[in-house]
Design a protein around this nucleic acid. Structure first.
Length: 221
DNA sequence: GCGACAG
DNA sequence: ATCTTGTCGC
């Protein structure tokens, strides 16, 4: 089942660039993306919020509400979330310099998680910041914010696919990986810029709030 | 074959 | 993802 989706991932995989593009701006605009679901109505809301990476001021936002068209299948999250996210991205007034996704980039069984998938399809430099290590392994980073430990794939010779990054002192780390055109060092540096106060990037927190609100207030009953 | 498994 | 109150702590 899902052979077509896996074949598409193999195609996209060859296009993923896990190094920072020349001239990549970490001090420009950063977009955060997230999707919320309502099982009752079978509808989902994708939200994208753009901030100034230096001040974290909100510059733009967009939401796309539509029916859910793909089930949640581990390893195929992008086929569920990318379509609505692309629709929301289309409504932005300007293309953001970088996109931060709630999930993985190349830290993925076939190296094409949601962030890489959307990055390749849009050409927007991207990275993934996930809340769980999935099947990957990592040592325990130091307790201080900024500490990190390599995230490795035991199923593939312990290849390094990302980092377990501590964004708050003594709090469980987040899992950062390159999406597309953003190297791991830059991905972590940006993640730290976006987490002056909470474990999760401010961008994903804002996007999470926006898509949840859109579901609550945007569904007629 | 069975279990694990981003959101 | 989502269902859900109070509660401990800065």
């Amino acid at each position: 089942m899902y052979d077509e989706a896996r074949a598409e991932q193999e195609r996209l995989r060859a296009l993923v660039r896990a190094e920072s593009a020349p001239g990549l701006r970490l001090d420009g605009t950063v977009a955060g993306a997230d999707v919320a679901y309502d099982d009752e109505s079978g509808v989902c809301a994708a939200a994208v919020v753009v901030v100034d990476s230096r001040t974290l001021d909100v510059l733009d936002r967009a939401v796309a509400v539509r029916p859910v068209e793909f089930p949640y299948v581990p390893g195929l999250l992008a086929f569920r979330e990318a379509p609505p996210l692309l629709a929301a991205l289309d409504e932005l007034r300007a293309r953001p310099d970088i996109l931060v996704c709630d999930g993985y980039g190349v830290a993925h069984p076939r190296r094409v998680g949601l962030a890489s998938h959307v990055g390749v399809l849009t050409g927007i430099p991207s990275l993934g910041v996930a809340k769980n290590p999935l099947t990957f392994t990592h040592g325990e980073p130091g307790e201080e914010r900024g500490s990190w430990a390599p995230l490795t794939d035991a199923a593939h010779g312990d290849e390094v696919v990302g980092r377990a990054l501590r964004t708050r002192d003594g709090v469980k780390p987040v899992y950062v990986s390159s999406g597309h055109l953003v190297g791991l060092d830059d991905a972590c540096a940006l993640t730290l810029r976006l987490t002056p106060r909470y474990r999760q990037p401010e961008t994903t927190r804002l996007a999470d709030r926006l898509c949840r609100d859109a579901l609550k207030s945007g569904i007629p009953r």
